[in-house]
Every structure is written in structure tokens, then in C-alpha cells.
């Protein structure tokens, strides 16, 4: 009973903090200085049409590097914990229905192409590496549901993930070697605004990030499918 009162006191304290923020809140009418600089100088300095992409990949490139590292550590933890321990029996699952198998053969390549389209055009339209990687992982989930006892290409997924991670850091070090700074995108030529091959090295970086995130999430789903066989 005291525990409940204690919990209610904590939540009420939190609510008082949030309410006192909301009471003195007035809407802004102009952007602050940093946003004004980013929005005004993206077209000349970076050459990307999507301002959020320019911020995530070049102006705030270190944060993206840290996020890719966190995803890598999480995928490694899941792979280590869910390692197979030799107590599996083949459970002979019921095969998937005819509609699902036929639809999967038709839709899986289309979903992969759509995911690749999203991260290649990341600097022109809304999208980018993380969205494209998630769509690729969802396509892989469709394949897993239609073949419940199939063997996923584990070696291919691991190879794609390693090469993409290495390529991302190598693209950053290239900028450092040419005297511009780590993860600078201006060493490939900016091109004209709105074309596919513009904005320097941003399409290449987003392709590496998209493939890496897609391979990692597919690996996690594959491990979660393997534990259904235990006991």
C-alpha cells in the first residue's frame, strides 16, 4: 500500500514538472540561428535537396556513426545470447498456404527493389538509409514466413554487413586523407541540385548505411526464427 503511494507520488512529481513547462510555453515565429544557417546554406555547400539528409550525414555525421555502432553492438548481443545450444529437434512445421507462397515469390523482389530505391534517392526525396534498411528487413520477414524451415543465407548477410560497415568508415577517412575533414562530402564534386548524381559522396554513404541496417535487422530476425526449434 505504501508502495502504491510512493509510485503515485513519483508520477505526480513528474506531471508537475511537465505542467510547469507547458504553462509558460509560447510559440516561436522565426527559426533560431543554427537552423537558419543550416537551411540557408544547404543548397550551396552540400548540394542536397533534402535538408534533414544533409544534417544527418554531413553536418551531424558523428552522431550517425555512433548510431551505427549502437546497432552493431545490439545485433552482436542478440546473436551471442541466442546461439544454438544443440538441444533442437526438427519440429516439422506445417507448410505455409499456397496463397502465401505464391505471393512471396512475386512480392519479395519488388520489396527489395523498393527498399533500394528509397535509400538511393535519399538526398532528393524523403527517405534515407534507415528507412530503406527497414523495408529490406520486412521483405526478408516475408520470405521467412513463407519458408518456415528454410535455410537463410547467413554467410551472405554477414559479408554484406561487414563490407558495408568498413566502406562507411573508409569513405569518411578518404575525406580526411584529402585534407577536408572526416566525413566531408565535397571531394566528389557537387553537381546540380536535384539530379541523382549530386551532393558529393552522400548517395554512397547512404547506400552503405542502408545495406548495413538491412543486413543487421535480417540477422536479428533469422536468429529469432532459429529459437523456435528449441525444445
Amino acid at each position: 500500500m505504501f508502495k502504491k503511494l510512493f509510485v503515485i507520488a513519483i508520477v505526480a512529481g513528474f506531471a508537475v514538472l511537465l505542467w510547469s513547462y507547458l504553462r509558460h510555453y509560447t510559440e516561436r515565429t522565426t527559426l533560431n540561428d543554427l537552423s537558419t544557417y543550416y537551411v540557408d546554406n544547404t543548397a550551396q555547400e552540400i548540394g542536397a535537396a533534402n535538408v534533414v539528409t544533409a544534417i544527418v550525414v554531413t553536418y551531424r555525421g558523428f552522431d550517425t556513426l555512433g548510431e551505427v555502432t549502437i546497432l552493431f553492438v545490439a545485433a552482436s548481443l542478440i546473436a551471442m545470447f541466442l546461439k544454438s545450444m544443440g538441444t533442437e529437434k526438427s519440429r516439422n512445421p506445417r507448410p505455409a498456404s499456397l496463397i502465401l507462397v505464391t505471393a512471396q515469390k512475386l512480392l519479395f523482389p519488388l520489396i527489395l527493389i523498393f527498399g533500394v530505391y528509397i535509400f538511393i534517392n535519399g538526398h532528393l526525396t524523403p527517405g534515407g538509409g534507415f528507412q530503406g534498411g527497414s523495408v529490406i528487413a520486412t521483405g526478408f520477414l516475408l520470405w521467412l514466413m513463407a519458408n518456415p524451415d528454410g535455410h537463410a543465407p547467413k554467410g551472405l548477410l554477414n559479408t554484406i554487413e561487414s563490407i558495408s560497415g568498413f566502406g562507411y568508415v573508409a569513405a569518411g577517412l578518404f575525406g580526411l586523407a584529402l585534407g577536408l575533414g572526416f566525413l566531408d562530402n565535397r571531394f566528389l564534386g557537387l553537381g546540380t541540385l536535384g539530379h541523382l548524381f549530386s551532393a558529393g559522396v552522400i548517395p554512397i554513404i547512404y547506400s552503405f548505411i542502408g545495406l548495413k541496417v538491412g543486413a543487421e535487422l535480417s540477422n536479428v530476425l533469422h536468429h529469432l526464427n532459429e529459437i523456435q526449434n528449441e525444445e
Binding site: 522565426t30 527559426l31 533560431n32 543554427l34 537552423s35 537558419t36 543550416y38 537551411v39 540557408d40 543548397a43 535538408v51 534533414v52 544534417i55
Partner: peptide, 9 residues
Amino acid sequence: LSSKFVDPI
């Protein structure tokens, strides 16, 4: 552009 866009940060 700084009077047409929402805050991107």
C-alpha cells in the same frame, strides 16, 4: 528559405 521551412534539427 528560412521563412518557409519548419525547424529541421
